Every structure is written in C-alpha cells, then in structure tokens.
Simulated assay, not measured.
Amino acid sequence: MPFLSRTQLIKLFQSSKFIPESIKGQNYIADYALCRKIGNCAKGSEQYKCILEIGPGFGAFTDFLFPLSEKVCVVEKDPKSSQYLMDYYKSRIPTQVINSREIQYLGYVPLKTQLTIVEDDFFSLPTPDAELIISNIPFTHVFEFILKLTESWNSRRALLILQKEVMDHILARPNQSGYTILSVICGFFFDSQILLEIPSKSFYPKPKVSSLLIELLPNKNLNLELISKEERKNFLVFLKTVMQFKEKHLQNTFLLIQAQNPLFFENFPHFKDALRELNLNRSVLREMTPAAIFHLMQKSRKKMNDLRANCEPIGS
C-alpha cells in the first residue's frame, strides 16, 4: 500500500528537496495503526457509491477506502503527492487522472473509474458527489473548508481530522466564549461528534497540538435538502457580516453595518424590520441559537408574509 512511515517520508522529502512546513498545515500521517482505526471509523452500514478524499498527501489511508466504496475520488493539489499516487495505483486498479481544464469545460468532476485523481485545489473545483467525505484539513484552511462543505453538502457524512481547538469552536453553544461563525454554521447544519483523539506524534512533521477525528452528519432536526444552495450561501454571507458584532445589541449592529458596509442591505433589505418584528433590538448574537440566527437571516431577506408562505419550519 502507499503508506509511508516516518523514516520513508523523511527519505522522500530529502530526495525531492522538499521541506514540509507545519505552519502551513503540512503534517503527514505516519501512524499505520491510526490509519487502520480511521478506516474502521469510515465503514458504513452498506457500501458507499463514492468516497471523496480531500488532501490525501501520499495516501496514508487511501487504501482503506477501496473496500468501502465502488469509487474513490482524491483531490490533491501538490504535484509530488499526486504523482506518487498515480505511479502507485495506475498498474493496480482502474485509475483516471482529471485535469482542471477538463473539469472547467464539463462543469463537474467525471467519476468513470474505481479511482479518480484530481490534481487541483479543492477550493477551485465543483465538489464531486460523494456519500462520504474524508480529509485531514490543514488548520490554515479549516474555516474556508467548512464553508465550502456547507454550501455544497450532498453527502451522508464527513470524517475530518481537525486540531482540538477548532473542535472547541464547532461544539461551542450560545453564551460560551468560543461561540463563533463556525459554531453557528456547524450547530445549525450538522450534528458533530468526536471519534478519535490523535496525538501529535502520529504526524510528521510533529505539530505542536493534538488533533481529533470528528464526524459530521446532517442535523437530524433539519431537512437540509429543503434549504437550497443559494439559501445556504446567503446564510454564510449574513454571518460573515453580523457575527463581527456578536457582542453588540442588534440595534447597534444595524447602525454599525449601515456605516461600514451599506451593501449588506442589498441582500438583506428587511434587517431592521426583522429586528423590530422579532423583538431583537436589545438582543446580542452570542446569546442566540443557530436556528434563531438563521430565522433572522430569512426575515431580513423577505417580508413577513412572504416568509410564512415560502419557508418550511426549521428545527432548533
């Protein structure tokens, strides 16, 4: 299998004159027992039609995915890593390599063989349809990754390796110090749980902090299919502005946005009316549940009568 031990990784990096940088999140799994545990966590009640692995590096646990799925798609932007995977797999299983030009022409990632290797930046691609998403996310891209995942979500579950401090934000609830945009997004759209604690010694180079393997599932109190991609995107745009002022009374938040970002009201023209109708002028966002903030976003876009006619009830 393509798994590389710590010693093998060091030799590979030396021969290619590549110096991985922890500060950029370039930490590679070098723990075979951990890879086996992740493979066990990835097992579903039945075989997946497709698994999407984002940032496989040198394929530490890619081999564990093939018994679980009809097809595996890996997205890797580093040419050394993707070339390593190509060289290893092309003589073993049906493999295709897709370039960004073909994807741009088609508008999607074609999954024709057992393994599809895409050498490109995940953030520049349409997200391939996959029932399971798995990724060891560089900490520098966690927020951007969660946003893209939320906007394009069409999966049964996701398994993500994150730094522990990121999970603290994901699990934070109203009135807790770590309550951020990430808390609201994950609290509204997903149910999350910790599956494994991962010591820093499992990686090379060794990061300064420990990590977690977490699972994201669609919120069981929310029918995510009823929320269009456009509506999800609207919520993310809304949060990026209003959560800057999460400690302020919302009537003051309105005034601050009016002064600093008047274009906000082109997308959310009824924000001020929504505050009045929901009696939220003296409320602060850090005290509000994700569902309440989403409802405020909806009312900020639509008049009350339109909202009642067009929106399904949202679970809290």
Rank of each mutant, 00 (worst) to 15 (best):
S202A: 07
L296N: 13
Q251P: 07
T127H: 08
S283C: 09
L160A: 14
E266P: 02
V97K: 09
L147W: 12
L236T: 11
D273F: 11
K272D: 15
A60K: 08
K80V: 05
R282V: 05
L111V: 08
P79R: 00
N281P: 12
R282F: 13
S5T: 04
R6V: 15
Q26T: 01
K229Y: 04
P207V: 01
N221W: 02
K299S: 10
I227N: 06
I146E: 13
L34Q: 04
L12H: 12
I293V: 15
D306Y: 08
E131Y: 06
K206E: 01
V72P: 03
R36F: 04
K229H: 06
G315P: 14
L278H: 07
Y32R: 10
L125Y: 13
T150V: 02
F3G: 02
T140F: 13
I38H: 03
Q8W: 14
F139L: 08
N310K: 15
L182C: 11
A30P: 08
P20W: 03
L213T: 12
S69P: 01
K272L: 13
F264K: 05
E119D: 15
I19D: 11
F139Q: 06
P110Q: 10
V284P: 09
C41I: 06
S283E: 10
Q193M: 03
G178Y: 11
I51W: 03
V97G: 07
Q104Y: 06
E215F: 03
L236K: 11
T113E: 14
F245V: 00
K240C: 10
P218E: 07
T289R: 14
Q8M: 04
N252R: 03
I227K: 03
P110W: 09
L182Y: 12
S81F: 02
R92V: 00
S91K: 13
